[in-house]
Write a protein that binds this DNA or RNA. Structure first.
Length: 370
RNA sequence: GGGUUCGUAGCCUAGCCUGGUAGGGCGAUGGUCUCCAAAACCAUCGAUCGUCGGUUCAAAUCCGAUCGGGCCCA
């Protein structure tokens, strides 16, 4: 794969992603300074993920906000395909969703697509994906969502609620649509072919506009949903997209739940975190210390720096100092890694405590079928 | 239900026709080098060849059955 090639689909992300090109390719809109300003005015906060372009693209986010200003409330929807343990990349859209929920005081639905992972991963059983769904739910709850306004949907458990909506959707999507959108072939099992309608279903679970914060790789599902929304008498879902969190080992792909060493899990111990970062994190440093002092490092390709930017260092002034020190050669790669290790472990310490508590809270979060 | 095709280390795959206990690539691991990581170089681990049975001195290789995946037709 050459430098300017990249692949972004719901099931596969590869290459060095050019996000401007992706916006063009997917037909989404870049988050404009005006939109950012508007969000800032409504929330009284300029969230660092917006400021730094971690959330970089959207579809009709402006409409959601205009409606909101007119007193029309929206709700939030996001989710996760439970194919393994939760890693820190997953937390990006969840954290942002949590912030949106807080600021706008709205309902949120979190969908765990255990059926989809069973369909798409040949070696996973339904028991395993359901087990991961539970595990992932704990991480989600640990972020501190409002239990009064937050419901977790597990596809195989909540099918009774989802199915009537999914049926409405499914009738309007034909085989050619899914083939074109997802690249399905004759080998694709029919679970996959139907599946997108289940991912659409929560968009219409309330009779209100919906805003979906999500990784940009999931956009194709909602492209279909948006296409058919009016046909079933519903509003198009609005989306706001985050970039892919790079794997520890390098910029050529997203962090994957199945690749041990390129991934920091929410359950990793401080020692494991330290070891993984030191041993695997791709750096933008120079070949040796002398050259590094002289030429400086490249924070833009340095994964440790990127993690700080994306998630672990919300303080702009601190981040800027790290950026400049690294770029000037004052800060060594090993030192940068030490900063990140400290930050991650600090975060995980509290996260893991909250995750334990979540085991007692999970019941009140699970959506009950009516 | 019929036909067809595939099943070799974590992944991809050679070998099967012309039987003599398996070769490569990627990956992984360790080392050298680096402030780390990457790259590069060196080294190492790893498969009883889906399963069961038969033929044979000898089977991944031939035969039968069976399980699993794919495609086509009905």
């Amino acid at each position: 794969m050459s430098a300017d090639e990249f692949i972004v689909t719901p099931w596969h992300v590869e290459g060095d992603i050019d996000y401007d090109k992706l916006i063009e390719k997917f037909g989404t809109e870049k988050i404009s300074p005006e939109l950012r300003e508007k969000i800032k005015n409504l929330t009284n906060e300029d969230h660092f993920m917006l400021r730094r372009g971690i959330f970089f693209s959207h579809r009709e986010m402006n409409r959601i906000l205009e409606d909101y200003e007119k007193g029309i409330e929206f709700f939030l929807y996001t989710g996760r395909g439970p194919s393994g343990h939760t890693h820190i990349g997953h937390l990006v859209p969840w954290m942002f969703a949590k912030w949106l929920q807080e600021k706008f005081d709205v309902n949120l639905y979190f969908q765990l697509t255990d059926d989809e992972k069973f369909y798409s991963k040949t070696d996973l059983t339904l028991e395993e994906t359901s087990k991961y769904a539970y595990e992932n739910a704990l991480d989600f709850i640990a972020l501190g969502f409002n239990p009064e306004k937050t419901k977790i949907i597990i596809n195989t458990k909540n099918i009774q609620t989802l199915y009537p909506i999914a049926a409405q959707v499914a009738k309007k999507i034909n085989f050619s649509n899914t083939k074109a959108t997802f690249g399905f072939t004759n080998e694709t099992n029919i679970g996959m072919i139907f599946y997108t309608s289940l991912q659409s279903a929560p968009c219409f679970i309330e009779d209100k506009p919906v805003l979906i914060p999500l990784g940009v790789d999931q956009d194709p599902h909602f492209r279909l949903t948006r296409d058919i929304a009016q046909k079933i008498g519903k509003q198009k879902p609005a989306l706001i997209h985050n970039i892919m969190v790079p794997a520890l080992t390098g910029p050529g792909g997203k962090m994957s739940a199945s690749e041990e060493k390129g991934t920091i899990y929410t359950t990793d111990t401080p020692d494991i975190v330290k070891k993984k970062i030191n041993k695997y994190a791709f750096s933008g440093g120079q070949p040796d210390i002398e050259q590094h002092r002289k030429l400086g490092g490249n924070p833009d390709i340095d994964v440790s720096y990127q993690y700080l930017r994306i998630f672990f260092e919300p303080d702009d002034a601190k981040l800027k100092k790290i950026y400049e020190d690294y770029k000037s050669g004052k800060l060594l790669s090993g030192e940068l890694k030490a900063i990140l290790i400290e930050k991650i472990n600090e975060f995980l310490k509290t996260h893991q405590e909250k995750r334990e508590k979540a085991k007692q809270q999970i019941e009140q979060f699970l959506l009950k079928n009516k």
